[in-house]
Amino acid sequence: MSTTQGHHARHRLDEAIHAPVRLSLVAALAQVDEAEFAHVRDTIEVTDSTLSKQAAQLEVVGYVRIRKGHVGKRPRTWLSLTPTGREALARHLDALRLIAEGPSS
C-alpha cells in the first residue's frame, strides 16, 4: 500500500549495501580510513573478481573510493569509504537495528 510505504524500517534499508558482500565491505571499511585491496579481500573472504566488482558498484554510487598507486614497483589498490558511504552505512544499520528489535518497528 502506498500509504504505508516508507513507514516500515525496511524502506530505510539501502539497496546499494543490502547485499551481503557489499554490507561486509562497507562495514569493514568503516573501521579504517583506508585499506589495501588484498587485505580487504582476505578479511571479508571473497575473490579478487568479486571484490573488484562489488567495490566498483559502490564507487559508482559514491560510497567507496578506489585509489590506485604503487609501493616500490608493485601496483597497489586502496579502498576507502566516502563520507556519503559512512552516512549510508549508519542509516542502513539503524534500519537493521529497528527491524531486529521486532515487528513494532
Binding site: Q5, H8, R10, H11, L13, E15, P20, L23, S24, A27, A28, L29, Q31, V32, A35, H39, V40, T43, I44, E45, L93, L96, R97, I99, A100, E101, G102, P103
Partner: peptide, 27 residues
C-alpha cells in the same frame, strides 16, 4: 508486494548486524 524492499525478518536483520561486527580490518 513491495519488490524494491523485500521483507526481511528480525532474525535476518540480527544476522546481518552480527556479520558487520565479526570481521575487523584494523591491525
Amino acid at each position: 508486494m513491495d519488490t524494491d524492499h523485500p521483507p526481511i525478518t528480525a532474525q535476518q536483520a540480527r544476522d546481518q548486524l552480527d556479520s558487520t561486527r565479526t570481521r575487523s580490518l584494523g591491525a
